[in-house]
Amino acid sequence: MKNKLVDLFNIQYPIVQGGMIWNSGYKLASAVSNAGGLGLIGAGSMYPDVLREHIQKCKKATDKPFGVNVPMLYPNIEEIMNIIVEEGVKIVFTSAGNPKTWTSFLKGHGITVVHVVSSSKFALKAQEAGVDAIVAEGFEAGGHNGREETTTLTLIPMVREKISIPLIAAGGIATGRAMLAAMVLGADGVQMGTRFIASHESSAHDSFKQLLLQVQEGDTTLTLKELAPVRLIKNEFYTNLQALYAKGANTEELKAYLGRGRAKKGMFEGDLIEGELEVGQISGLINSVESVDTIVKSIIKEFEIAKSELAYL
């Protein structure tokens, strides 16, 4: 399969694995890269020394291209960027910040830079900042999300209209048919997060993976817009959060209840009651935990079948 995205990353398939906190260690990233996609290490949940360790292990586990996802709102950002350069990482996805801050630094060291956005306005700003590609993430996506609540179906063509660089669609994509639909809308490839949580290689807790398989339509929601919008599974933590909203809690009260380490507690340690369980709406379509290789092969097979069916329309 050849297109601009495949050429940019030197990969076999235009499939990018989301760099999700507490889910995306070197085992997942290397497995996706070995399967023909682009694996990403999720730096957002790693101390600098842990990130270095995962990069080094990923280089040993695959000879294929892989990258690092860096949410720029986290501390130690300068140290993290220096480690990425020192370790010879060739691809970086940035998010949750101004792309102007680090793009020139990274590109100055020969690194391909991709920025994640939730609107056509910020896609254009990222292109102007000099990034090599854009991830446009719709409202359906799990984890931290945009405030605009624009769905992937409407976001992708609007972003495509604004930019000329490669475009990666994200949010609500877990199948070959969804991949084809995104590309018909103007994307050059897709980024999948939730689908890869339900893999053997994901670093998510097994209890979290099993819960993900039980999620049905309507079981996730976007909340905490006052702090940083996040889509998660409705559990006891969410129920208590809604009680605070009902009482008219202010930002400081919400922040105090959220506390620290809530996502780690849920996704990595398996506390399904008090943890923050971040998944996308597409989880209602995921019914099994499989190997990354099986997942990628299934996606590509379905993509090719769907594409052949379109020829008859």
Rank of each mutant, 00 (worst) to 15 (best):
S164R: 12
G218K: 13
F139I: 02
K60Q: 07
E226F: 00
H115C: 10
A170W: 06
G142F: 01
A182E: 01
K107L: 11
A29G: 06
P14Q: 15
E79K: 03
A198W: 07
N287L: 14
P157R: 09
Q17A: 10
E79I: 03
G108L: 05
V92D: 06
S288W: 14
S104R: 13
I134K: 08
L124N: 02
K234D: 08
E290W: 02
P65H: 07
G108F: 08
S288P: 12
L28S: 03
A311V: 10
V70H: 03
V68E: 04
M46L: 15
G176V: 09
S199A: 00
M1Q: 07
N23V: 14
S33N: 15
L28Q: 03
M46I: 14
S24M: 09
S45G: 14
N235S: 11
H54C: 07
L313W: 07
K125R: 13
K121S: 06
K225F: 14
I83L: 05
H54M: 00
R52E: 10
A126Q: 08
F196V: 13
I80M: 07
D7W: 00
S288H: 12
Y26V: 00
V68D: 04
P48V: 07
E78K: 06
T175P: 11
T152K: 04
H200N: 14
K297S: 09
K301L: 10
P157L: 08
N3T: 03
K64G: 10
V89H: 01
S33K: 14
I84C: 04
R147D: 01
F268M: 15
V116M: 05
N240F: 00
A246C: 13
A136T: 09
V230G: 11
A169W: 02
T223C: 04
S283W: 01
K264Y: 13
